[in-house]
Amino acid sequence: MDSREFAQRVEAMQGALYRVAYGLLLNRADCADAVQEALLRAWEKRGSLREAAYFETWLTRILINECYGMLRRRRAALPLDGLPEPAAPPDADPALHDAIARLDRKLRLPVVLHYMEGYGVDDIARMLRVPSGTIKTRLARARALLRLQLTDEHEEGRNR
């Protein structure tokens, strides 16, 4: 794969990269850092991509790992408690943003990959290297929590 094809495929999935990174980091500035690192790493290691058809999954996995690395460094540098909840970006759906942001990271990532990016359960399971059943369970739990949160928010809105 040459740099031109690489660039074309990255540009086509720019939005997806942003959403996956944001889903884990919940911070716009960090997203750009993570994606930049992931792209450089992916280019260096493009030889390990055996089938071009899996480019998107492969790059997403690299990005997820990069995000985990950033979270680890962030955890070491910052106290875990007392951090304010992340504010939704101005163009985001604030209710949905907050509901998803409140989910545990283990539930949040499958939601992003499945509902936002359209990956199937098996693809996500392979990507995260956990059993498909676990992904299904997490999606179900996430749905239940989101339903609860969004219904509460809707009720509150109506009562106001």
Binding site: D2, S3, R4, F6, A7, V10, E11, Q14, G15, L17, Y18, R19, Y22, G23, R28, A29, C31, A32, D33, V35, Q36, L39, L40, W43, A88, P89, P90, D91, A92, D93, L96, H97, I100, Y115, M116, L150
Partner: peptide
């Protein structure tokens, strides 16, 4: 019906610029 893709908004200009710069750097490396 909510649009899932709007949950986190769209990538801003800063993000897009960083991606473009990174891809340019990759091209130069090649």
């Amino acid at each position: 019906m909510r649009d899932w893709k709007k949950a986190f908004g769209q990538p801003d200009d800063g993000f897009t610029l960083r991606v473009q710069q990174t891809l340019l750097a990759i091209e130069e490396k090649e």
